[in-house]
Each structure stands twice: as structure tokens, then as C-alpha cells.
Simulated scan of single mutants.
Amino acid sequence: MPRIYESKILILATHGFEQSELESPRDSLRDAGASVHIASLDGEKIKGWDGDDWGREVAVDKALGDIDASAYDAIVLPGGQINPDLLRVEKDVIALVKEFHDAGKPIAAICHAPWILVEADILKGRRATSYKSIETDVANAGAEWVDEPVVSDHGIITSRNPGDLAAFSAKIVEEIEAGLQDRKAA
């Protein structure tokens, strides 16, 4: 089983990510010893959304087109309303998420980011949560939507909102250390 301090984790985001939903897991996972890379669509800096206005820029390590999923142990998808809505229409984003899914690697999505999982069609038969406003989208994708802070089902980790970030990050660590997941059970 991989240990968190031996793992490589990818965070995929674009402009409009919820500031805390990228920075908190990034910092928590790095503090636990993981190597964390941030990717954007074009490899350029991305700007967050913080409260009711634009937030800070975040440096990016790679462009989406340069990502080799086999080099990573997990992927984290921050929420916010803007970020996942922009990402879920990108065919290469959906293909990458499916690649992580098919390899049995942990996929973590918070707030509105389960929209990306809906688009990738990987929630059918799973328990999942999300920000309340996309509950119907998650349920219509075939998931059993539950009102819980963090839900993990065969390595697919979902969380409701930024108030649950500590539990979200802890669950990512737990799933990485559990190893690859059998996704045929859903």
C-alpha cells in the first residue's frame, strides 16, 4: 500500500476555483508529506474566488495536456461555481478523470466539483454528497445523494462545502493509503 509521504497527487483547476478548496487540501497533503502538483488547462497561473470576489492567484506546475495519470496516485477537484462548470465541458478533463477512475485511483471532489464526476459518468450506483444546489444533478447521475460532510465510496470522495475541508483532506489521505479501489462494485 502506498503511504501518503510517498504519493504524488494532482489538483486540477482553472480560474474561479474556491480559494480554500484548493489551498487547504494542497497544504494539508503537502504537510503530510505528499508531492502535490497543480494543473490548469493551459499551464498558466489561475485565480481563485474568495467569498464574494476574486481571490489570489495560484502557481501552476503543469498544463492539462502534459499530465500522465499513471504518474499520480490521486486527483483532487476543487469546487466553487465557476471552476467545475468550466472544467466539465472540456473533453480532456473528463477523459483524465475517467482514466483515474478506471485505474482505481482516489478521486476527490468538493462542493460543486461533483459536476465533473457527473459529466464523467462515474457516480452511478455510488453514495455521494455535494453542495446542496447540485444535489439533483448528482442524484440524476445515478448516485445516492446523502447529506453528510464527506462521503467515500470505493475511492470516490465527495464533500459538501469548505466547512468540511479538514475531514475531506483526512479522507484523501486514508483512501491513498488504502490503495487502488475495485470500481466494479457499483
Score class of each variant (00 low, 15 high):
residue 28 S to D: 14
residue 19 Q to K: 13
residue 112 H to S: 09
residue 164 D to P: 07
residue 57 E to L: 04
residue 155 G to N: 09
residue 143 A to D: 07
residue 57 E to Y: 12
residue 145 W to N: 02
residue 122 I to K: 11
residue 179 G to F: 09
residue 73 D to E: 08
residue 143 A to H: 05
residue 166 A to M: 04
residue 20 S to G: 11
residue 127 R to D: 06
residue 46 I to Y: 03
residue 72 Y to T: 01
residue 66 D to W: 01
residue 160 R to I: 07
residue 156 I to E: 03
residue 141 A to S: 13
residue 72 Y to Q: 02
residue 86 L to I: 13
residue 136 T to P: 04
residue 52 D to I: 08
residue 22 L to N: 10
residue 92 D to K: 15
residue 130 S to C: 05
residue 75 I to E: 01
residue 43 G to K: 08
residue 72 Y to W: 03
residue 147 D to L: 05
residue 160 R to P: 06
residue 77 L to S: 00
residue 176 I to E: 02
residue 122 I to A: 10
residue 109 A to G: 11
residue 90 E to N: 15
residue 111 C to L: 07
residue 15 H to A: 07
residue 80 G to W: 06
residue 104 G to P: 01
residue 70 S to M: 05
residue 49 W to H: 10
residue 17 F to T: 13
residue 85 D to K: 12
residue 99 E to H: 11
residue 85 D to V: 08
residue 90 E to W: 12
residue 2 P to S: 13
residue 73 D to Y: 01
residue 22 L to D: 09
residue 106 P to H: 10
residue 2 P to E: 13
residue 114 P to H: 02
residue 13 A to R: 03
residue 131 Y to Q: 07
residue 61 D to V: 01
residue 57 E to P: 00
residue 145 W to Y: 10
residue 182 D to L: 07
residue 177 E to V: 02
residue 147 D to T: 02
residue 120 A to L: 11
residue 97 V to K: 12
residue 22 L to R: 09
